[in-house]
Amino acid sequence: MSEIVLDVRDLEAGYEPGVPIVRGASITVRKGEIVVVLGPNGAGKSSFIKAIAGLVPITGGTVFLDGKDITAAPAHTMVRLGLAFVPQTENIFPLMSVEDNLRVACGILERREIPARIEEMYAAFPDLVRQRRTAAGNLSGGQRQMLAVARALIVHPKVLVLDEPSAGLSPKFVSMVFEMLANIRKSGVTILLVEQNAKAALAIGDRAYVLVEGKDRHEGIASELWNDPVVAELYLGQRPLKSEGGSAA
């Protein structure tokens, strides 16, 4: 088995002291894996992943990245530590051009490395090239998601963390986004994502966790989890509308 990149132990987090939303969740992510976190609505998935990224105050537990304790690290230091986060919505700067969106994220790169790195991103996401001078707010939903992912990847993260990348996208774009994530993994990037759209996420994932009431209740191989009776009861049974899993966030 490959080495552990991200190790989250008994994480507790929440906005108000004494009212934890995440209540002792533990996961591990190994190098080169895609790990999916599933869970019913209100299970604290989003808060869990935001807490890892330093955006929700952590009240207990630890987060290790590459063996280093990053539990108390402020959000803006995460990219330097090797964790790049893609929020669910509002994940681009709408009034800046596509190119400036990429460039503004290059703060930790060597100055002379930046132009080449931007070109590499354009090569990986050819849709963005033609739009490089366009204000990012004018992109389509799928292109925005691409830009957000490109912006996260540009700093060579050790782990790419995504909060519901398929939320709010039309079915066509949903499959496009998951295809993109599968390709990114092939290039060697480790991925952790939270998803509402369980079927699509499990199709590309290696392993998955099910989060219920702020705790990890179940872990398994992604391809097997879909048919697991415990998961069906915990998660699928509570799914409000089967076909709208992707947009129910």
Binding site: A53, G54, L55, P74, A75, H76, T77, M78, V79, R80, F85, P87, E90, N91, I92, F93, P94, L95, M96, D100, R103, V104, A105, G107, I108, R151, V155
Partner: peptide, 18 residues
């Protein structure tokens, strides 16, 4: 660019390392 980013979306600005 960091200033522009912060004025447009403060939370995202922190996420991208500003």
């Amino acid at each position: 660019r960091s200033m522009q980013a912060l004025s447009q979306n403060a939370a995202l600005a922190r996420i991208v390392g500003i």
